[in-house]
Computed example of a mutant assay.
Amino acid sequence: MDPRSETALSSVCPEFATKVRAASDALNADGTFILVVSGLRSADEQNALYAQGRTTTGKIVTNAKAGQSMHNYGLAADIVPYTTGNSGQVNWNASTPQFQHMVAAMKAQGLEWGGDWKGSLGDFDHFQLTELPASPSIAMRTDYGAGPADLSAIWDKATTGAYAV
């Protein structure tokens, strides 16, 4: 996995990161390499993304404000395959065989794909732990509060089924 991806995975739930790395290893064996574009996001980063296309320039890319995205909890990542090799251009087209191969590898590790969700944006590069709601539950938001510096208690609950749907 490339350094940018490792940096993104270094701040997410360790169990989630392990699953992404395992999928990456399986893909690498087939000559497909991935980029973890985004992992954990601060409240400010999430709100800036939410503002995009609404109060700032750019295309709308999320319907989630701070605390409403699994990225804020370190339980999700946006991931795309490189078009060729392990650097350079990436493939954002979820309908391609290469992208679907990546999706299958992530699902084989027990990760949920945002492309399976019904909704207007189609979160095709989004992966998160399964058995969690697509958006954080009230219990998760309560535990998150104003954005804890240490997410380990939330990660423990997420990986032991306390937030399961």
Rank of each mutant, 00 (worst) to 15 (best):
G115R: 09
E131Q: 12
A29C: 04
A164L: 03
G53Y: 09
V61N: 06
A146L: 13
A8T: 03
K59Y: 05
L132W: 01
W92F: 14
Q98M: 12
T96L: 10
A153W: 07
T32P: 06
A164K: 15
D2S: 10
D123E: 12
P3E: 10
A108N: 13
H71N: 04
S120I: 08
T56D: 01
R54D: 05
R141C: 03
T130K: 15
D150Q: 02
D116E: 13
G88W: 07
I154F: 00
D30W: 05
D125A: 14
P148K: 14
L40E: 05
G67H: 02
L151Y: 03
Y82E: 08
A164C: 06
E112G: 11
K19T: 03
K157L: 10
Y163A: 02
F99P: 04
E45K: 10
G114N: 07
S152H: 00
K59M: 09
R4G: 01
E6W: 06
T142V: 11
K65R: 15
Q52D: 09
A23Y: 06
D123K: 13
V12Q: 02
K59E: 12
T57D: 13
I60Y: 00
S5M: 01
A51D: 15
H101E: 14
G31T: 14
T159F: 00
A43M: 08
A134Q: 15
L75G: 00
A158V: 02
T7W: 11
T62D: 03
M1T: 14
E15K: 10
S95K: 13
A94Q: 14
S137H: 13
H71L: 08
A22V: 04
I79K: 10
T159M: 02
G161I: 02
D150P: 01
M70L: 15
S10H: 08
Y82V: 08
A17F: 06
G31V: 07
M140N: 03
T159H: 03
S38R: 15
A162R: 03
A149S: 15
S42M: 01
A43G: 11
L151S: 02
T96F: 09
V61M: 05
K107S: 09
K157A: 09
L75E: 07
N93F: 04
N28C: 10
D125T: 12
S24N: 11
S137V: 13
R54M: 03
A48D: 03
T159G: 00
D156C: 04
P97Y: 10
R54I: 03
S5H: 02
G114W: 07
V12D: 01
A17Y: 02
G88M: 07
M70Q: 13
R41D: 01
N72P: 02
N47Q: 05
C13F: 04
E131G: 09
F33M: 06
A153Y: 10
T56G: 00
P97H: 11
A51G: 05
D25H: 09
G74C: 05
D25F: 04
A77Q: 08
A43Q: 07
K157S: 06
L121P: 03
G161W: 01
W117G: 02
W92K: 11
P148V: 15
N47P: 09
L40F: 15
A23L: 08
I34W: 04
A76F: 01
W92P: 00
S87Y: 10
T57F: 05
L27S: 05
A26S: 14
D116I: 06
A105H: 10
